[in-house]
Amino acid sequence: MPESPVLTLRGISKRFGAVQALKDFDLDVHPGEVVALVGDNGAGKSTAVKSIAGVNPPDEGVITWEGKPVTISRPHDAQNLGIATVYQDLALCDNLDVVANLFLGRELRRFGVLDEVRMDQRARELLETLSIRIPSVRIPVASLSGGQRQTVAIARSLIGSPKVVILDEPTAALGVEQTAEVLDLVERLREQGLGTILISHNMVDVMAVADRIAVMRLGRNNGFFDKRSTTTEEIISAITGASDSAVTRRQARKREQEEDR
């Protein structure tokens, strides 16, 4: 990667009582890069994301943002830095229209009154730059398809002009077509120079859009793979820890990476 990472995690650990959910977790996100975070259920993916998003601050470890160490102890801190998170349950308000949802909690105002015109305008611009196609920005979100709703949720995270977007299983509930819509959108985030962390259990999706794949297993890193030089089988064996060869390859790669640094 020619550019320096916008976000780095080093040695992140998190305990929940007797459970060591994260142990010495490392991750880099570069601008214009899609990093897929994969691992079995309970591997610690959501915990890792929550430590970045400020929902569950880590016990140990260093988070660096644009080269400077930062502490993220509240969701607000993450937002202020420029980290936007789209949780799997979208948290859209069905009864409100697309514009109202996009600006919920940070409505534009004029003389203390909602500025519908400017919100309408900015919503259109945003949806246009993302090539999101919805029938109208003034219909209730309830009448959108699952994929359209997901794209609206992602668009909403972009209102604050973030630099890193975290998507926790954005395609889990979607059909083929709608998944494609969301993956298109992820690619557009990359084109616009945003760093993206994509959590997914779907290897096809991961191989389709990710530049790098970070595998987690039992709360630890279990290898980083470059999309161009890896196979689905290799990643799956790293996820399951089934194959010895995967572990050796992982160690080899890890060594390589350390030399790169």
Binding site: A91, C93, D94, G105, L114
Partner: peptide
């Protein structure tokens, strides 16, 4: 007003309103 919008948001999706 923003306040009115918030009432509708809470009525539509409590968790969504909270996260916003």
């Amino acid at each position: 007003t923003t306040y009115g919008r918030r009432i509708f948001a809470v009525g539509g999706n409590i968790e969504g309103a909270r996260r916003a």
